[in-house]
Design a protein around this nucleic acid. Structure first.
Lengths: 187, 187
DNA sequence: ACCTGAACACCGTTCAAGT
DNA sequence: ACCTGAACACCGTTCAAGT
């Protein structure tokens, strides 16, 4: 009954992530991944449900690298730490990163990241629906900024300017978190 | 010397946008666009510089549909109008919209949109570098939110929740614009 | 159970040729 | 000047067959 597997889901994702980092998203093809693993293209289909599942797997890889924030840090240092960590991931994997804004954040890995941020926000005094809403806006702003940086949307500006942009973004977010909304309904 | 052209850049972009709206970005192929125009694939290359130029052209199409804001509106109504207009474009062209965060905003059309927003912000009292920075963060937040909505990143939530999210986002942005940064350097 | 071979419809792009 | 025909390397995916 059967021989040992020469590849697996993990090895496939490793190879795909390397290809993405080297050649961009267009370089991530089933054929290229298989070639890198010294296997025929069709062998991948036993371990991965197709190209779309492969891309979802890459997004999951990035998510598991996200910084986990501890609640109850002094001031709003957790915000800086989290946003900076996310920005670093974008720099490390510029081709894959924008997919975070493109694919639904409903996988277990994504939910774990969201829950952690919501917990910190509740710890900081927000109501549960308020914390969940703030998490959505927070993550959108930070992901959007990091993605813009990495796709070259701001390519006319040098690093110093973008660093100041980032600092200003954090100031905006702290302002918002310090000023609670008037009413609260719906989750 | 030559016969009249049966197609042109405009017709190609029309066809491509229709395909994107109907079948998603994956449906936008040189072959499919040509088929829709009753022309061979190779005919496109005389009018369009390849697939990448085609996608850039689609982004340009969306940008020219962006709302142009008048300065000196009472309150910050221009912000609501602009953000709502952008949100509507996202709904109308959900497949193409995320490309706005993915492709550099350096084309003439993109620059025009940016300049208009910067002008309004200066009119509201920001310094020039401050207005330019605010424009970058503003557009990132609004584009990021609209893109998230349209790619299904928030698909667990129904429309009412997302509408409240949007209102809260606008509140955040107004707060930020009402509170000028401490120092100003670099553009 | 795992991988390969053969095959298919489709993709982006080039070049020479027709009108 | 504009479009077509023929062609190429590559893509995602399926299915039957080998070990």
């Amino acid at each position: 009954m059967g021989r040992p597997a020469r590849i697996g889901r993990a090895a496939i994702l490793d190879a795909a992530l390397e290809l993405a980092d080297q050649d961009g998203l267009d370089g991530v093809t089933m054929h290229a991944v298989a070639r890198r693993l010294n296997v025929t293209t069709m062998a991948l289909y036993r371990h991965m449900d197709g190209k779309d599942a492969l891309l979802d797997g890459l997004v999951e890889r990035l998510l598991t690298g996200f910084p986990q924030q501890q609640a109850r840090q002094p001031g709003e240092q957790w915000l800086t730490a989290m946003a900076s960590g996310i920005r670093e991931i974008a720099r490390r994997h510029p081709a894959v990163f924008p997919l975070l804004l493109t694919r639904p954040a409903v996988t277990p890995a994504a939910q774990r990241v969201r829950d952690a941020v919501v917990a910190v926000l509740q710890d900081a005094g927000l109501t549960e629906p308020g914390a969940k809403r703030a998490e959505r806006l927070l993550s959108t702003a930070v992901l959007g900024f990091a993605a813009s940086e990495v796709t070259g949307r701001f390519r006319q500006h040098d690093q110093a300017v973008l660093d100041q942009d980032f600092a200003e973004l954090l100031r905006w977010l702290r302002l918002a978190l310090a000023s609670p909304p008037a009413a609260e309904e719906n989750g």
